[in-house]
Design a protein around this nucleic acid. Structure first.
Lengths: 324, 324
DNA sequence: GTGAAAGCGCTAACAA
DNA sequence: TTGTTAGCGCTTTCAC
């Protein structure tokens, strides 16, 4: 495999000149440029990225930590992150923590080893202390890690307001909110509190149904949905994450409940999962692509130590459907 | 940031000794080991992976190319690949080609630049010539690239036999198979030909319904399902990829067709998408996790130039459901 | 415009 | 056991 030296020798110039040509830097005469390019072609030269990285102290790689990929929300997020990174000439290194003991720690360790220029952290950390004395750039994706790590996120307060407003305008009187396991707190939970508060102010009865710990399979969502209908048969409105609500839609059909006539279903997130059925689910949509682009922009600015006073928050929107 | 030299000076030894300690290689006396470890701790030393990579000419990184992540099949595959790589102390660099012009070329270029030790290629290549004179290790994931690139895949021949057998045993007389766009060929298509052949031998009428080019949204699947019921109202059996069949199940409900009484639905792949409804879809399941583990084992063996005569093919299995 | 030389931070052969 | 030395392959400063 040809190295820069070989190219230099072949072209009859110094290695540094080859470097200049490759990187289109400084001034190089047309004649030498041509010679160098010919030599590169002849030797089928491909520069070593690793050597370059060592020299520049930069890898152009960003690490992404997410719980899983099989959950549609994270799948869509990671896909969007990869696209945004590619756009900026960055590579993505991926770590999924959900089923892997210690993987988060290992991954952060790689960051310290300068394998990556920075990370975008979107998993619920099992060990927040990991991030405490970390010098490298981090951007959190809808997660609170500590006071020094900035968060890119959707405006969940507004999301909650919007949700309440919709359910109110649909005339709901008893709403059940399906919330994740409350042992871990995530910023996204806020929409639940905001919506509940606003609904209650308007005289709506609000109940919270908590999912068990580590329940992420559709089977679990179905179980919770059944529990919901059993515990709150009078409910006329349901608010929860996409898959929770999708399960409710299925169970409602099973029980002969008419949606949206007698029961309003409102999903939060608005991934493709809300589109996968005869009856698209009305949803508060997190702007996944835009959030991903923002996170990428932020992490790259952090890596480059560039000033960036633009906001870290993006508004949700309403995704039309037939369940509200 | 402390370097190996600093640690060496602090511990009063040579850099090479520090290296030996870090990598647990060769013989180092307990006393010096302790001194070195103390120095590392004191200086908060973290070795540079990049320098190590340059020295070893190895990155312990494998690139993965897939069309997308939002499609459940690929999401599950990539998640499993990442887990298997992690298990072997490898990192995963990801590239999604679906919506990105030229990204495949760029990614392969990174392989040539030795950013990664090898790649697992699971996207349908837009430019097979890219792989022709590539020296680096590649394993294809259910894709044919060229005669030199080995393929990890599910036994689709057996999958087709199994599918036919099930539909026959259910007494189907007119089966429609929903096939992907035929302008690009993928190994997975084989199950369609095999199943069709076997069904026809048994006197079953078989029709092929082709999806349009680049149709991957659920909306597209619904459209094809509607087309199917309109074109072949007499069909009593349907075979196709998970999402195609899921759409058929929805449309069947809409049209009042009884499944499985009057219409048998059989999905191929068996991702979580077949579980997301009241009526789980009977499926021929590709062993995604095992395939991922196999692909990882194969690529690592290739990287290490280790002999490996184990098979590249894994059998499908039957995933029980309520549509057949 | 171009080349010589030092440096990025680590590993490994060989000598001591 | 441990240290010396020479790489790994590129970038960059600074003479010329």
């Amino acid at each position: 495999m040809a190295r820069i030296k070989d190219v230099a020798r072949e072209a009859g110039v110094a290695a540094s000149t080859v470097s200049l040509v490759m990187n289109k830097k400084g001034y190089v005469s047309e004649a030498t440029r041509a010679k160098v390019e010919a030599a590169m072609k002849k030797l089928n030269y491909v520069p070593s990225e690793v050597a370059r990285n060592l020299s520049l102290n930069r890898t152009n790689t960003i690490g992404v930590i997410m719980p899983s990929l099989s959950h549609p929300f994270f799948g869509e997020v990671v896909e969007a992150l990869e696209a945004a990174l590619y756009e900026q000439n960055y590579k993505m290194m991926l770590c999924c923590t959900q089923h892997k003991e210690n993987s988060e720690r290992t991954f952060v360790e790689m960051l310290r080893r300068r394998t990556m220029d920075g990370i975008i952290m979107g998993a619920h950390s099992l060990d927040v202390a990991l991030y405490d004395d970390l010098k490298q750039p981090i951007v959190a994706f809808d997660r609170y890690l500590n006071d020094n790590i900035p968060i890119v996120h959707c405006d969940h307060h507004q999301g909650g307001q919007l949700a309440a407003q919709i359910l109110l305008s649909q005339g709901c009187r008893q709403v059940v909110e399906i919330v994740g396991y409350q042992g871990v707190s995530t910023p996204a939970n806020e929409y639940h509190w905001v919506a509940a508060d606003r609904l209650r102010r308007h005289g709506v009865q609000v109940e919270m149904l908590e999912m068990p710990w580590n329940a992420f399979s559709y089977r679990d969502f179905m179980a919770s949905a059944r529990e919901l209908f059993q515990k709150y048969p009078e409910a006329d409105g349901i608010l929860g994450a996409d898959l929770s609500v999708s399960a409710c839609l299925n169970v409602a059909a099973e029980m002969g409940r008419r949606v949206p006539e007698d029961l309003k279903l409102l999903a939060y997130d608005g991934t493709a999962a809300t589109r996968m059925g005869l009856q698209p689910i009305t949803a508060i949509r997190q702007p996944i692509e835009e959030l991903a682009q923002l996170a990428v922009k932020k992490i790259i600015n952090l890596v480059n130590e560039e000033q960036d006073d633009s906001p870290w928050v993006l508004p949700p929107s309403l995704l039309a459907g037939k369940t509200c």
